[in-house]
Amino acid sequence: MMQDFILQAGDLDLLVQAIRKEGFQVMGPVLRDKAITYDTVASAADLPQGWTDRQEKGCYRLERRDDDAYFGYAVGPHSWKKFLQLPRRQVWKARKDTNDIQVTEITEEPPRMAFLGVRSCELHAIAIQDRVFVDDQHSNENYAHRRSNLFIVAVNCTCAAATCFCTSMNTGPKVTLATDLAMTEVIDGDEHYFLIGSDSYRGSQVLRQLPVTPSGKRHEEAAARGVQNAVRQMEEGPRRFDSSDLKELLYRNYESASWDQVAERCLSCANCTMACPTCFCSTVEDTTDLSGDHAERWERWDSCFTADFSYVTGGPVRADTRSRYRQWMTHKLATWHDQFGSSGCVGCGRCITWCPVGIDLTEEVRNIRELEKPGPEQ
């Protein structure tokens, strides 16, 4: 069982520097372009201390908190997948030399990365992508290599955005998956500290370098109250729903009128899939220079919302927005179970926040349920 210690908030930078000393490039939350995104963190001063995010359908705003919390926000527009499944990368290049063609596979030695501030829903998202890119029969070597060197510092959520619904997906807000270090930020009166513990040898090595003290019952109860506050916000919020039978519900309603209703609003812009921490679709682009002597292949993110994604001889398999949205939602919440043994949704709410027309996945689930109910005349 993980033993918890107390790290004073003023010593948080010692944690950052200890991880860097172990040879990791620390990636964490920073303020960029009026949002909290993930980027390089050189010190605790780079973290969004005192800031929070207000999220709703098609709305994201940064606001000042009334305290100095370092992790007093939910999730931003970007997920950790951008560091593991790169948005765009070169796969190979080829050059014609006289009558010989030389093909060179592009290999790289990625930096040893440490993710600081990973939420429970995001840990589940990384685990889902692991099943796709590492555990599946068709593994992605680039992803697997980056993932193998990863050091993770998880943070329990003590507040939730209005778009969060991880409690409905059983993915948070408390960290339950194994991680190198796990922390809970506590602000109680004049006290500001982190309850911190380790799940791994690497994490314990970092922990030994910090000026921590053993935690007491009151510290653990204060941390538990913080996590329970996030639970309460979601349980009392508008996004709570029953996910226990989603697979069967969607299979029964493949021809529901709800798909026509959502298609009238959906722009097929693919924002939901780009922001989603588990969507993994990609495509390859082959380019050749004008001389015909040089060619390259690049892999980049793609989306089931684009018309070309399902294009085969004769045209796209999913030619309209109705079929594309149905594909995305049914795959995410239903057929993903058949492929990978779990839902593809972790309840982070990004698809709700970053949809320009405010389509809400939880509302669509409720709408399908309502349309399935027999009318009075029946």
Results as ranks from 00 to 15, higher is better:
L249F: 11
P48L: 00
S258P: 01
D13E: 12
N271Q: 11
T176I: 04
P48C: 05
K93E: 08
C351Q: 05
A223T: 09
A9Y: 04
T52G: 15
V175R: 09
A295P: 00
A74T: 09
E372G: 07
D4A: 12
D39M: 10
D338A: 14
D320N: 12
L123K: 08
K247V: 05
V41K: 04
W92M: 03
K21G: 13
R324M: 11
G76I: 01
Q3H: 13
L150S: 10
V30R: 06
D4F: 15
Q3E: 12
A257D: 15
S244P: 11
D53K: 01
M2A: 06
V16K: 02
V317S: 06
G375Y: 11
L210S: 12
L249H: 07
R324W: 11
E248V: 11
N253S: 14
Q261Y: 06
A160D: 04
S139Y: 03
S120P: 05
M113T: 08
K174L: 07
L14M: 14
D293I: 00
W298D: 00
C266G: 09
C276H: 02
E236V: 09
P111Y: 03
V91C: 03
Y73L: 09
E296H: 01
F151W: 00
T273A: 02
Y201R: 15
W298E: 04
D130L: 12
T273Q: 02
Q137E: 13
K332G: 02
I359S: 02
Q205P: 00
T288I: 15
L210E: 10
V357Q: 12
D242T: 13
C266W: 12
R95Y: 07
E364D: 06
A334P: 01
R112S: 13
H331G: 09
I36P: 15
